[in-house]
Amino acid sequence: MATSQEPVIVGFLCNWCSYAGADSAGTGRMVQPTNVRIIRVPCSGRVNPRFILRAFQRGADGVLVSGCHPNDCHYSTGNFFARRRLLLLKRYLEYLGIEPARFETHWVSASEGQKWAEVVRSMAERVKALGPSPKLPSLL
């Protein structure tokens, strides 16, 4: 949280690709930061933009949404809908005064444990550089 040294990143991971990808990073014993708190969702299309704002509201320093690569969605098109929505959301958050780097979207497949570790490492670095999130209550 804002008071601790280590930033907290809330990660919404799709069940079929990214969650399995994070799992394979773990079973592959890849070294990765422990900043991400994972929430498993059926599909990146399940992520309501409200989830993201709620995470920030409750003190998350960063939010990460990760799903299957485009065209690889378990439900065929879920991530395409998510992509449009999150594109719009990213600009909207920036407009409201939340640093855009605090919110990221990535595509990580089940076999990309290496990529997952890299995504977590680089995002944790960026969020750490930003410092603790001002938290919405004090931001506004």
Binding site: R50, L53, Q57, L136, L140
Partner: peptide, 14 residues
């Protein structure tokens, strides 16, 4: 409180 106000306006517009 401000964070709920923001939440409301965020939800309404989005």
């Amino acid at each position: 409180v401000p964070s709920e106000q923001l939440m409301y306006h965020f939800i309404r517009a989005f």
